[in-house]
Design a protein around this nucleic acid. Structure first.
Length: 806
RNA sequence: GCCUGGGUGGCGGAAUUGGUAGACGCGCAGGACUUAAAAUCCUGUUCCUUCACCGGAGUGCGGGUUCGAUUCCCGCCCUAGGCACCA
């Protein structure tokens, strides 16, 4: 007897070649017939390592989602590119001497080939590579637009400094006080830095209207942006006319304020102590604080609270008391950089105890007077005010707005909002990045490069070893540094820092549909058609980095009238992480798992489906190959169901099941529940093994599995005589009439416990159903134990009797 | 400390406007085919008790609401991720 067997290795190669030959995945961007669908996976860094299972999970499953959309009849655009500037290539270069441009281009070639092995429908024709001049030219252009509109500026400020990577980091790139690349403890370093006014977009970035994003991601961003409502309160210095303005979210505690703290890096500190006997000590403490790493400075716990008295006093505007001003390490340049300190804040409380500053309470649970002397820590709860002038006796939360208006009336306070979000420091003292297009001229000062002379090309022959003094390697390249001033033509020097790679990735989604344009970064009309990205897939670790920067840049371009859409990514999905033995896969841990052996053994469709079958897409999971053989068996059974000729036993039942399957698979793929879509397909295939399947149903079945197992589906589709690609066919629709069940099984409960089961017509009357249920002997047994006081009938679900014992 | 998720068989996981918990797959056990093996197919598989039926327990722990709770409420524990001296 002839056996039909599926051979994934040959078949997959065959279809990959056919797709390539037909240019199947090259999207016609100008097509008008179908609706557009822009699907995007966050572009990868072109690492020299081979693709691991995480990549497959990411790119393979995203591809299934895009193929599904294609079969919905949409013109799908799923481009691919590389985020190719950055430290790994540069560090590799320092170690080996191979130029980053060479390793990067070589790695890209290797990765492209590996993506093909997944069987993805990615469009490489519109590829974007951020380290190529035809791309970073426009990254520089973007910087100039920011600059011209006052959104890019230079500031001399202590910045986050990674001593290992020898570069500045943005706030977003410091994770728990450590460099998010290399894990070194971040220190502070005074540097002249380019920054983008991200903070001025805080409020706009809080608008998520129309976005289909995971709630969790929005929460994370909101948390990062950190909007708080509070008040600014002015404290007049006792000598001179100076005013220190404090920001507080607790103006209700104003009557308890017994001292004021100012951030050590606050520009007013010098004025406060200049020429006084406190100057020396303040400067000593300041430099001590400055030397602290971010972790030391910001870790909680009273021990490491340090500060010192400035010798100056201010007046508490409501109690009129003269209170001392301190510098303190726990006060950051947030809000106004000045805080009013009191016994109702734990940090202030600890600081006061350490430096013997007097404390006083004005809130207690019931309004009875309490004294901090009898307390170990601050009272931070709500309650009733006392010793608070006219506000005594009121609930503190109710009094809060009234106290603000009271202070507003007297002119020393006002309601304000604050954000934790800071500006985006983008200078990097590294070689492998896009040069910042600015020159410095002795005569004209800081001058932007003319747009017409972009790109400012990154010179190739540079000693990229770190200079050791915190300077960019480009500083040593005199051919690069020395240039002419675009304004006066005189001698000038180029900016030698390069841009944070997150600038490159903040706008790449705009470039894909316009990647062939040489005279502009993008075209407004083309983007009007293709933006926003309909489905964006990437890891949740980018919630407070790339996803904030991209929204910011997009919004700026919108405000400048250069594009027509407010938000770049309409729907966002995060893939979960694939771990090995519970740990993140990484080369250094040596726990990466290569897909190769599984592809060789079972085929790429099987690996892809197995990854999907592990669980919900956003959960990720711990890798184990234990169950992959089950998917492989399923692939074989699927093929046999299609390939074998078998008499169909129960046509009607098969059709009903098939239509239920269409509904289930459609909904599950749409909602990224690939695991249950596959289960449903398995159930159906098992049924079809038994009952056989007619040709029309086979066609539908093949269509349903196509997004999940593209090669298998193409092979089966041609096997049953279809001439076109399955991906050119239209997704099947289910017939509502066919999925309605005529009979239904009901559980019969007595006092909530299941005692039997009956099968009835779906529209059977309550009386009939109850009658039948009562007649079950095992139900009878429990009914006779007492009196039936209640009968429950939930159509299609359950029948219940409540029996009360006699 | 704060903000999110999540805890279900030996394992990955299904199922929640409250209604028969454990779909599907792995593994395991038994059987068929085979000289034998592989492959394939069939049957069983939450735990306890039982030959079997019946029965009891059961969705992290402790309470509560309900005829009925994996699902809702209160209080905990564990775990993953994010934020963290933000006044």
């Amino acid at each position: 007897m002839e056996e039909n067997r599926y051979s994934p290795q040959e078949t997959e190669k065959k279809w990959q070649e056919i797709w390539k030959k037909k240019d199947f995945h090259n999207t016609d961007l100008s097509e008008k017939k179908r609706k557009k669908f822009y699907g995007l996976v966050m572009f990868p860094y072109p690492s020299g390592d081979k693709l691991h299972l995480g990549h497959w999970y990411n790119f393979g499953i995203a591809d299934s989602a895009f193929r599904f959309q294609k079969m919905q009849g949409q013109n799908v655009f799923a481009p691919f590119g590389f985020d190719s500037f950055g430290l790994p290539a540069e560090n590799f270069a320092i170690k080996t001497g191979v130029h980053p441009a060479d390793t990067t281009e070589a790695n890209i070639k290797v990765m492209e080939r590996q993506i093909d092995e997944i069987g993805g429908m990615y469009d490489f024709d519109k590829e974007v590579v951020t380290s190529r001049p035809d791309y970073y030219k426009w990254t520089q252009w973007l910087f100039l637009q920011m600059y011209k509109n006052g959104l890019a500026y230079r500031k001399n400020e202590p910045a986050n400094w990674c001593p290992e990577c020898q570069t500045v980091l943005a706030n977003e790139q410091v994770q728990g006080g450590k460099c998010d690349r290399c894990g070194s403890e971040v220190t502070r370093k005074m540097l002249n830095q380019w920054a983008l006014k991200l903070s001025s977009y805080a409020e706009k970035l809080l608008d998520y209207e129309g976005l289909d994003w995971p709630e969790k991601t929005i929460k994370m961003q909101q948390n990062w942006i950190g909007k708080s409502h509070g008040a600014e309160i002015d404290f007049r210095l006792t000598d001179g006319d100076g005013i220190l303005t404090a920001y507080t979210t607790r103006p209700d505690t104003i009557y308890s304020v017994t001292f004021v703290c100012i951030a050590p890096e606050h520009p007013l500190v010098d004025d406060l102590v200049k020429g006084t006997k406190y100057e020396k000590e303040v400067n000593e403490v300041r430099s001590k604080i400055n030397k602290q790493t971010l972790i030391e400075r910001t870790s909680e716990g009273g021990e490491d609270k340090i500060g010192c008295f400035t010798g100056r006093y201010v007046v508490n505007p409501v109690t009129k008391e003269e209170i001392p001003v301190y510098i303190a390490n726990f006060v950051l340049m947030y809000g106004t950089g000045v805080v009013m300190a009191c016994a109702h804040d734990q940090r202030d409380f600890e600081f006061a105890k350490k430096y013997n500053i007097s404390l006083r309470f004005v809130i207690s649970e019931n309004g009875e007077k309490t004294d901090p002397k009898n307390f170990e820590g601050a009272y931070t709860g709500d309650g009733v005010l006392f010793d608070s002038g006219d506000f005594s006796g009121m609930n503190n939360r109710e009094a809060l707005p009234k106290m603000v208006s009271f202070m507003e009336g007297l002119g020393f306070g006002r309601a304000t909002v604050n954000y934790k979000l800071r500006d985006w420091l983008l200078s990097r003292q590294r070689y492998w990045g896009a040069p910042i297009p600015i020159v410095y001229c002795d005569k004209c000062g800081e001058v932007p490069v003319e747009e017409s002379s972009l790109p400012v090309e990154l010179p190739r022959n540079v000693d990229f070893k770190p200079t050791g003094d915190g300077m960019s390697p480009l500083a040593k390249c005199s051919d690069f540094v020395n240039t002419k001033c675009p304004k006066c033509g005189g001698p000038a020097k180029r900016e030698v820092d390069t841009m944070d790679t997150f600038v490159c990735s903040s706008w790449y989604y705009l470039r894909y549909p316009c990647s062939k344009m040489t005279d502009k970064p993008f075209d407004k009309d083309v983007l009007k058609k293709w933006m926003p990205v309909d489905l964006y897939i990437g890891g949740p670790e980018h919630a407070c980095m790339h996803l904030i920067y991209a929204r910011f840049v997009n919004r700026v371009l919108f405000d400048l009238g250069l594009i027509d859409h407010k938000e770049p990514f309409k729907k966002l999905i995060h893939q979960g992480m694939i771990t090995k033995d519970g740990a993140k896969m990484s080369k250094s841990k040596g726990n990466t798992v290569s897909p190769d052996e599984f592809v060789a053994k079972y085929g790429s469709d099987v690996l892809r489906m197995y990854l999907m079958f592990m669980g919900p897409y956003s959960d990720g999971g711990d890798w184990s190959d234990k169950g992959i053989v089950g998917i492989s068996r399923f692939q074989d059974r699927f093929f046999r169901v299609i390939a074998d000729e078998k008499e169909v036993v129960d046509m009607n039942e098969m059709h009903r099941s098939l239509h239920k399957l269409i509904k289930k698979v459609s909904e599950d793929i749409e909602s990224f529940h690939f695991n249950t879509a596959i289960s449903a397909l398995m159930e159906f295939v098992n049924l079809a093994m038994k009952n056989g399947l007619d040709r029309a149903s086979k066609k539908v079945l093949v269509q349903l599995i196509a997004p999940l197992a593209p090669h298998l589906a193409e092979e089966c589709f041609s096997l049953i005589g279809e001439e076109k690609s399955v991906f050119e066919s239209v997704w099947p629709k289910f017939d509502k009439k066919l999925i309605v069940e005529s009979k239904v099984k009901l559980g019969v409960q007595v006092n909530g416990k299941v005692r039997g089961e009956i099968e009835v017509d779906i529209d059977a009357s309550k009386e009939d159903v109850l009658e039948l249920a009562r007649s079950l002997s095992n139900v009878q047994k429990y009914l006779v134990l007492g009196e039936v006081v209640k009968e429950i009938f939930v159509p299609g679900k359950v029948i219940g009797f409540v029996v009360k014992e006699k």
